[in-house]
Structure formats: C-alpha cells, structure tokens
C-alpha cells in the first residue's frame, strides 16, 4: 500500500468515532475467518459468527442457503448506522448513489429491450425505488433529480447512436463515477477523494484486463472511466502489449502487486479470482489507514466498507460450504478483513 492521504481531525465526529472504535472490535478478524473456512459444516460457520457484529441476524437465519436475506438485513443495519453517525449528506450519497444508478440501468434496460422481464429495484439508493419506477412508467422525469435526468438524456442518446446496450452501460458507469468523484471532492475530505480514485483505477485495471484477456470487441476508450490516478492514455498505450509483460508497466505505481498476482493467475487458468481478491485487499489496506485518525469521518467510512467486505466473506464461505467446495479453493478467494 503506497497510498498517502492527509487527515484533518474533525471534532464533529468525536462521539461517532468512539462508537465506531467499539463496533470495529466486532468485525470479523482474520483468525475468525480462518476458523470459518476450516469449519466442517454450515452450522459451525454460523457458530463462529455468534460473537460478531452479525450475531443477531445470524441467529434469525433459518436457511443458510438464503444468505441474500441476511445480507439485505445487515446492509440495512449499515445504512441505518451511517444515517445516524454521518452528518455530511454528500458522504451518505457517495455510498447510496451506486444503487440509484443500478435502478436507472435496470429501468432503462427494461424500457429499451424487447424482452419482457421482471425487475428487482434496490431500496438503498438516494431516490426511492418507487419514485424511479413511476418516473419511467409515466415518462415524468421531473420526479428525478437534475443529475439523473442528465444521465438519462445522455444514456438514451448513446443508445440510439450506437444501438448497443453495453455501450450505454459503459457511459452510465462513466457518469456514475464522475458523479461520485464530484461528490467526494465536494466533501473536501481527501480520504474520500482518494477512495473514489482508487475505485476508478481498480475498475479500469479490471476492465482493461478483461477486454484484453477475453478479447472482447469492446472499445477500450469507451469502457474505461475517467478521473482516476491512472490516465486513460496509459491504458491505451498498453493495448498491444502481451498479458505477460503488463506487470513491468506498473512497476512505478501502487498497483504492481495486484497486477503481478492477478495476471499470473489469469494466464495460468483464466481465473480473475486472485485479481478480484487483491483488489478488495487493496481497498481494505487503504481503509486501515483510518486507524490513524483520532476524530473524523474516515473511521465511519472504513467501518461501512469493512462491513460490506465482511458480508462478502461470509457469503463466499457459505457458498463454498453449501456446495462442498474444497477448503483450499475457498481460502484462496477470501480477501483480508479490517481486524
């Protein structure tokens, strides 16, 4: 982790930071995760979750196969806590906006495709799902905020211009990250700006490797997202390089390790599991920097991100155990935890 970031103490968050420091101890630890991975049965996995932040929800989980419900409840708890502890609405929006964009994509896709399909909208966005649905059903887009109307306009133009849903999705992803970057800069919190930039970089590296390795016919320039630390022209210069030689081009940037490890596995058997895991690890290592903050919003954000990571870890272990996947195979996909 070579990222450096400036922290400014914020006394508005004195109580919140104290509360989070207590809650952090209940997050999954690496030793607990190891025990869960080595468990012989699902019930053993659930027993190890008893003394954690997920104790109550796990206790009510009747069927481990329906872990989706468990994740939904835990995410509700996370957002509820965030609502109560974070005072800056832009920070809250930073984590809710992706769900608005998800709803937008689903509604646009349904509208533009000829396939009649049932859709599931997320309730975690800043705009209530019902409002978005009504806006699309009645063509009354004034029910939506201005930035969303702008996105819809651009997305439709792109769709009719390119006649391609994927191309439209690339544009929406670009606009989503631009908006996230704009929000993070608006908060004036360097930790958040860097976080969004890291997310953009990791998404771009992943996109680049996916296009390159799977040889999709996608336009790299269209699929990449602007605003990260790595410039788009850097990726465009690498387009003709062989996958084996890619790590050498990242020797001077903080993503070298994840590129080396990720590309090795991709070349070996086409699996992105290590790359995905190392990307999660990179973000988690960045979140760990919040430990140096005495009072501020950073520990709350780190706690929120860590909870999401924990939920992914629990899901992966449950999936592995439910499908009797060998322990070693589960272990190699599990990212690090905050503790």
């Amino acid at each position: 982790m070579n990222q450096t970031v400036e922290f400014k103490p914020d006394l508005k968050y004195t109580y919140a930071t104290g509360r989070i420091r207590v809650l952090e101890t209940k997050l999954l630890s690496s030793s607990k995760v190891e025990k869960m991975i080595n468990s012989r049965s699902i019930s053993d996995v659930l027993i190890y979750l008893e003394d954690t932040a997920y104790d109550d929800t796990v206790g009510e989980m009747k069927d481990p196969g329906k872990y989706g419900e468990f994740v939904k409840i835990e995410r509700l708890i996370s957002f509820d806590l965030m609502e109560r502890l974070i005072l800056d609405p832009d920070v809250k929006h930073l984590f809710r906006i992706p769900y608005d964009f998800h709803n937008l994509k689903v509604l646009l896709k349904r509208r533009l495709s000829e396939v009649a399909t049932s859709i599931v909208l997320s309730d975690f966005g800043t705009i209530p799902a019902e409002v978005m649905k009504t806006a699309f059903e009645t063509d009354n887009f004034h029910l939506l905020p201005e930035f969303m109307r702008e996105v819809i306009g651009q997305a439709l133009a792109q769709h009719y211009l390119k006649k391609n849903l994927k191309s439209m999705e690339f544009l929406i992803d670009n606009l989503e990250y631009n908006h996230l970057l704009f929000l993070s800069k608006k908060t004036n919190i360097p930790f958040l700006v860097t976080y969004v930039k890291i997310k953009i970089d990791l998404t771009n590296i992943s996109t680049f490797l996916r296009i390159k390795y799977f040889n999709t016919k996608d336009n790299v320039e269209e699929a990449l997202i602007e605003g990260g630390n790595l410039q788009l022209r850097f990726f465009l210069q690498l387009i003709s390089e062989s996958p084996e030689s890619l790590p050498s081009f990242f020797s001077n940037n903080p993503y070298l390790y994840l590129i080396e490890e990720g590309v090795r596995k991709i070349i070996e058997d086409g699996s992105f599991s290590i790359f995905d895991k190392e990307s999660e690890n990179y973000i988690m290592n960045y979140m760990k920097l919040s430990r140096y903050v005495t009072f501020g919003i950073e520990p709350i954000v780190a706690y929120f991100v860590s909870r999401e990571q924990d939920l992914n870890i629990i899901k992966m272990i449950l999936v592995g155990k439910l499908n009797e996947i060998p322990t070693e195979e589960i272990r190699q996909r599990i990212p690090i935890t905050f503790n």
Partner: peptide, 21 residues
C-alpha cells in the same frame, strides 16, 4: 452475440470467466 452483455464497473472478471466457461 456475446455472453458478456453488461458494463464492467459493477461486475467482476471472475463473472466473465465463469460465464465464458
């Protein structure tokens, strides 16, 4: 057509890899 009919920002390479497999 292609089985990867989605954007890359909220999906993982492992999803592509599994779908192609």
């Amino acid at each position: 057509g292609s089985i990867q009919n989605y954007g890359f920002a909220h999906t993982t390479g492992e999803l592509d890899s599994s779908l192609l497999a």
